[in-house]
């Protein structure tokens, strides 16, 4: 984590593109640039800037946006109010898609219906979430006019907020769900051909009950690992989807800041996402160990 923060910072700070120049525009006088650089603390040595930044983060102070002069914590907070629920909803949609699709296409892998499920699955993986989002806008929003095609009115009206998030979440979740569905399928196929499932059936369990009682947990272990990775995929996907649906979330904020060279905001968000990825992976690791006694012993 610490190493991650150093990388983010160094890469952003050392490489060219002086924020002060960008902020003030091309007509800025050198003295004005110097003054602003001073004010923003950009004249200090890099390590000093880094220490300030990290110190700020640790104490819960994310710094001040170069552009708006607002504390970043506030901006980020309101952005997360959109992004957080979006990711959560996307994950839900993803699971609803992945589990039935994967189990069905594995159990029926030798019949036509299973093959159809598999093909649908492949197509689901091939359509990127933002493309699906645009298509959903065209069909559901523009042609059918069922749901809003973009924008977000805030949580003061929860129903409307959920309506705004529904399409983006579906776009996000279906694609991630298709990817996870493939893993579910593989895991179920592994279990179906396992010796212990055969033992379970030799004991007298019917195929369905054997799969439920002995299969599910064994499927869960490998699927959970990819789910962790896919959660990271969801966060990244959310950044893009927000731009498709013009939702005022973290992704929109991030891209605005890139355009404006608002370094501190970019740094904070990039680090936040990287942190989420690392934390999720760590959490998955822990759950993984608690689910699988074999790994637990190795530790």
């Amino acid at each position: 984590m610490a190493a991650a923060s150093v990388i983010v910072f160094v890469v952003l700070a050392i490489l060219p593109g002086k924020p002060a120049e960008v902020i003030l525009g091309t007509q800025a006088t050198p003295s004005a640039v110097r003054e602003l650089t001073d004010k923003l603390g950009l004249d200090k040595p890099i390590w000093r800037q880094y220490v300030d930044w990290v110190g700020g983060i640790v104490s819960g102070h994310l710094g001040t946006s170069y552009i708006s002069g607002q504390p970043i914590a506030g901006e980020l907070g309101s952005a997360l109010e959109v992004t957080g629920p979006l990711v959560g909803l996307g994950l839900l949609v993803g699971l609803v898609v992945a589990v039935p699709l994967g189990v069905f296409s594995a159990v029926k892998s030798r019949s036509a219906s299973g093959v159809v499920a598999s093909v649908l699955n492949q197509i689901g993986i091939a359509v990127p979430s933002f493309v699906l989002g645009i298509l959903l806008i065209v069909v559901v929003g523009v042609e059918l006019r069922l749901l809003p095609t973009g924008g977000f009115t805030g949580w003061s009206d929860p129903t409307e907020a959920m309506r705004s998030l529904l399409l983006p979440a579906v776009a996000l979740g279906v694609v991630e769900g298709a990817i996870v569905g493939r893993y579910v399928r593989t895991a179920v196929l592994d279990v179906l051909s396992s010796d212990y499932l055969r033992t379970a059936r030799a004991k007298g369990l019917t195929p369905g009950r054997a799969l439920v009682r002995h299969g599910l947990r064994n499927v869960a272990v490998p699927v959970l690992t990819v789910l962790g990775l896919e959660l990271a995929g969801l966060v990244v996907g959310a950044v893009i989807i927000e731009n498709v649906f013009t939702l005022p979330g973290m992704g929109t904020l991030l891209l605005q800041s890139v355009e404006n060279r608002d370094l501190i905001v970019v740094e904070d968000i990039v680090l936040l996402v990287a942190a989420v990825v690392l934390v999720v992976n760590f959490a998955v690791d822990i759950v993984y160990h608690s689910l699988d006694p074999r790994i637990a012993r190795e530790r």
């Binding site: 010796d195 055969r198 033992t199 007298g204 002995h214 064994n218 272990v221 006694p293």
Partner: peptide, 21 residues
Amino acid sequence: LRGRRVAMVFQEPMSALNPLM
């Protein structure tokens, strides 16, 4: 009938048991 009247023992004792139970 399986497991009650006719039962079976397999070759690989490791993989024949559910590792998570």
